[in-house]
Nucleic acid binder design. Structure first.
Length: 481
RNA sequence: GGCGCUAUCGUCUAAUGGUUAGGACGCCGCCCUCUCAAGGCGGUAAUACGGGUUCGAAUCCCGUUAGCGCUACCA
């Protein structure tokens, strides 16, 4: 393969947000391009006017940017082969559709949607595959001219060969073959003048000199039509690689309804871009080693299309959680705190004391799979009064030994200048020496007195947040109840 | 229904004719430990089924089954 010529594209239709399946397709295209010193292009396929969604394009670009998948050519960055938005290329497609008509490789079709529906119903009733019956395929030039002049709505259809097979090589699946007999005379230009995916896609991939088409497996059945189109135009077709699908836990194509599918949803919950990228990269691909943590640059270095899997992969949130937690752990205390602050604020917690907020995050950070979870663990720090979470907690406090421990701790605390995570161990040592209590009997009453709970962060980290006065206040309030 | 793709632990996957079928997530246990996490150590668990080919098959071939995808004037 000539490395100089690798050009690939990610060509989503802007229907609202970036789907994780889309992200995976974009990522594999990106990795393939960068690995081969090629170009990665973003093209927008918005030929369906009915599916226009306000702000979708901006949103898509934003998410791609956050994920670090920068493109060499595309909508907002330009390039030599623009425009990169299909709705702005209508005239181009018209020209090529006309060329196909001229070459007798396509024809005008004047059938009404009603007639088409009728034909379809009859075929289904007869248990035949629903296909266009080629009613308009052999219209004479005069008939066509007449109908055109009388303004009957029309589409342009592809003239599929009646016989033979279409065979092509898929980089992931090997040789794939389809019989022309089962191929429909695909609509290339709709009655509103816009091209369908099939025409626009082929024309653009050719004009933009795309070398490899890397897309989802759902496109495999329409690939023979595309191959035929390249042939009809007399063009060389690019190489094809159809990626295995991303699946729901029930093995159907990944979809909303069974969890989040928008990349922005995961971002909003506090999954890190690097973690999402790393996780998604390993869905349907692996480098053949046992290493699992990869930066984007490492992925570029290792990526190769022939290590892409053929079978679909379930999007397992469990593993994403593990991987994200792994990336979270590599963050500094300051970094992770800054990332947690928006979630704390949203919950209404006061984060004005930054030093204190950092200490709180330090105390709970090992629990986090994703940042939004931080609010599940911090109530003990923000609640003004100690409330026993259950019977077990309140009974811990009532024992005689608990009273001894708390009294002793109080006495020592009052003598200390301050209490923090570094001197707390020694303080407890003194309590132990003076009371003769140790282990659970020693520590649990303190934990419950400070937090009201029997579970939670490490005690030194808790007292570090509260400081001397607050610790004393809490212990006293518990003793008095 | 037709066409196509696919098939290794529950999940992501390694092993491209010869391995005690390996790793990771999850789960379980142990260690650490005041608790919960984290961390360390260990365990659980798979070649869909049936035929071939071969000295030898998870791997190649055929069939069966199952799953998924496509079958729009959507992409």
């Amino acid at each position: 393969m000539n490395n100089e010529t690798v050009r690939v594209r990610f060509a989503p239709s802007p229907t609202g947000y970036l789907h994780v399946g889309g992200l995976r397709t974009a990522l594999f295209n990106y990795l393939f391009a960068k690995h081969n010193n090629g170009k990665f292009i973003l093209r927008i396929e918005d030929t369906d006017q009915n599916r226009f969604v306000e702000g979708a394009l901006e949103n898509l670009i934003k998410t791609l940017k956050i994920m670090g998948l920068s493109y060499d050519e595309g909508v907002d960055v330009g390039g030599d082969f623009g425009p990169y938005v299909q709705s702005e290329r209508k005239e181009i497609y018209k020209k090529y559709a006309d060329e196909l008509i001229e070459k007798k490789q396509a024809y005008y079709c004047f059938c009404s949607p009603e007639r088409l529906e009728e034909v379809r119903q009859r075929q289904i009733a007869e248990k035949k595959p629903p296909m266009y019956d080629r009613h308009c395929r052999e219209l004479s030039d005069e008939e066509v001219k007449e109908k055109l002049n009388s303004g009957i709505p029309h589409v342009i259809r592809m003239k599929i060969p009646l016989l033979g097979d279409v065979t092509f090589t898929d980089l992931i699946r090997g040789e794939v073959s389809f019989s022309c007999k089962i191929l429909d005379d695909q609509i290339l230009v709709k009655s509103d003048g816009f091209p369908t995916y099939h025409l626009a896609n082929v024309v653009d991939d050719h004009l933009m000199k795309i070398s490899h088409i890397i897309r989802g497996e759902e496109w495999l059945p329409s690939t023979p039509k595309h191959v035929l189109l390249y042939k009809a135009f007399g063009w060389n077709s690019p190489m094809f690689a159809h990626l295995p699908l991303l699946l729901n836990p029930d093995r159907t194509k990944l979809s909303k309804r069974q969890g989040d599918v928008a990349v922005e949803d995961y971002l909003a919950k506090g999954y890190l871009p690097e973690a999402i990228i790393n996780f998604v990269a390993l869905l349907g691909w692996n480098p053949g080693s046992e290493k699992e943590i990869f930066s984007l640059d490492e992925l570029i270095e290792k990526f190769s299309i022939d290590r892409v899997q053929k079978a679909g992969a379930i999007f397992d949130i469990n593993k994403l959680n593990w991987m994200n937690a792994h990336y979270l752990r590599s963050l500094s205390d300051e970094e992770i705190t800054n990332l947690c602050i928006p979630y704390l604020k949203q919950k209404g917690y006061d984060v004005s004391d930054h030093e204190k907020t950092i200490k709180i995050v330090i105390a709970v950070r090992t629990h986090l799979n994703y940042l939004a979870e931080v609010v599940n663990y911090v109530d003990i720090f923000f609640n003004k009064e100690v409330v026993f979470e259950n019977e077990e907690a309140s009974s811990v406090i009532k024992t005689d030994s608990a009273k001894v421990v708390l009294n002793e701790l109080l006495n020592i605390l009052k003598l200390e200048e301050s209490v923090n995570k570094d001197n707390f161990k020694n303080i407890m040592k003194k309590v132990q020496t003076n009371t003769g209590l140790k282990g659970k009997d020693l520590f649990m009453p303190v934990r419950v007195a400070l937090t009201g709970k029997t579970h939670g962060p490490e005690l030194p980290l808790i007292v570090d947040v509260f400081g001397k006065e607050e610790c004393i206040r809490r212990i006293l309030s518990v003793k008095n109840n």
